[in-house]
Design a protein around this nucleic acid. Structure first.
Lengths: 212, 212
DNA sequence: CGAAATCTAGACTATGCAGTATGATTGTAT
DNA sequence: ATACAATCATACTGCATAGTCTAGATTTCG
């Protein structure tokens, strides 16, 4: 009999099944995020430390496993609205923190891998990009647009379009630096991007205020 | 004997060989841009209207054909510096034209497909992203940075970083709208993006001028 | 303990696909 | 005309891999 290392109680069937599921998903993550959907099922089982047959008892087929993995990853990175404390900040702080949070994700290879796979496989699995846009992009852009619209110091004419511009600039910086190896070929520090973006937004905001 | 329809001269061996090459590359384009590197060689030959064996007489293997195709596509879309007449324009015109040119590429399925394939396969073929950055991104960003730096009305502190922000916003708009099907799920007109980007840059420029 | 369920390792099947071989056909050149 | 080169259609080889099967080991739990 196997014992849980903390409570020293025997592991129930359900607990063990969750554990197996986790092992499989962990293996799938390494494989899929490295090789894309082309990853092979033997490797996945091996990486998960589990027999191939076990993979198939928990997941119907490769596609199900893939979807389940992406779903779980999207959940992990879901933009949790935006903290109320952040939304209460004045623009200089708000945009600085926002930018830093967005750019910190570049350090997470699982996040970078997820974005690559979504772009790569969005032709084969359209529901992938659908979920990505709904769960990650839309909430982020919406919160940002809301902040811009509601803050009296930011009198921009089209908050939604502006939110997309800012969001796009940050996402594309990640794509070019991390996915396209730009960090070796065309390196640019996050600080410069952050500083320039702040300058751009805050100067424009100042001017917009004067203009009206 | 086959005759060229215009000159009525017999077709030379070299001419015919070029024609075959073109047919193969045309087939490869349709297949690779649709299915990525996973496209299969039978389909490619069929799409090109050519026997499979012929593909292999002109290209060593799948990888060579793939590289040749991407190279040719990158050449076609290479950012030809930027026209001198454009570089001579004042900021409002310059940025409006620049944005429109950049966003027009969204209409070209071959361009969109190329970008998707590059992102998708950059892990398997690192030289892909290398060529893309060197031939498409770098010249564009450099020209833009140069324009910003040299124009006395644009006194931004970091032209290079700003150039990347603008470039990134435009590229990411294309990715999210065309590759991730955002045009159906989160539609946004190019005009709004263009207008907002112009507002942002020109307002900020005005403020930067006053601040110094 | 002992029965039932689950897991493992590895063999096996079926399929798809890159690349090759062949033999017939067509077009080219002398 | 005839020899030659390229092309075509098609069959074939070899390999990778998704998914299944089996027999034996391990775990769960009454």
């Amino acid at each position: 009999m196997q014992y849980d290392c903390i409570t020293m109680q025997s592991i129930t069937s359900e607990q063990r099944q969750n554990k197996q599921r986790e092992k499989i998903l962990a293996g799938a993550m390494r494989a899929f995020l490295t090789y894309g959907y082309a990853a092979n099922m033997d490797t996945i089982a091996q990486e998960g430390g589990v027999a191939k047959q076990t993979v198939y008892t928990y997941f119907k087929d490769k596609e199900s496993l893939f979807s389940a993995l992406i779903d779980r990853l999207l959940d992990r990175f879901v933009t949790a609205g935006m903290g109320a404390e952040l939304m209460a900040q004045e623009p200089p702080v708000f945009f600085r923190v926002l930018t830093q949070i967005a750019l910190q994700r570049m350090d997470d290879p699982e996040y970078v891998g997820l974005i690559r796979v979504i772009i790569a496989e969005s032709a084969r699995f359209p529901e992938l990009s659908e979920t990505y846009l709904n769960r990650l992009v839309r909430p982020g852009v919406d919160s940002l647009a809301y902040y811009i619209r509601e803050n009296p110091n930011l009198r921009f004419s089209d908050p939604e379009a502006l939110a997309r511009i800012i969001h796009g600039a940050l996402v594309n910086f990640m794509i070019s630096q991390e996915i396209l190896n730009g960090k070796f070929m065309m390196p640019m520090s996050r600080e410069r991007i952050t500083a320039s973006l702040l300058e751009l937004i805050l100067f424009a905001a100042e001017q917009a205020k004067q203009a009206r």
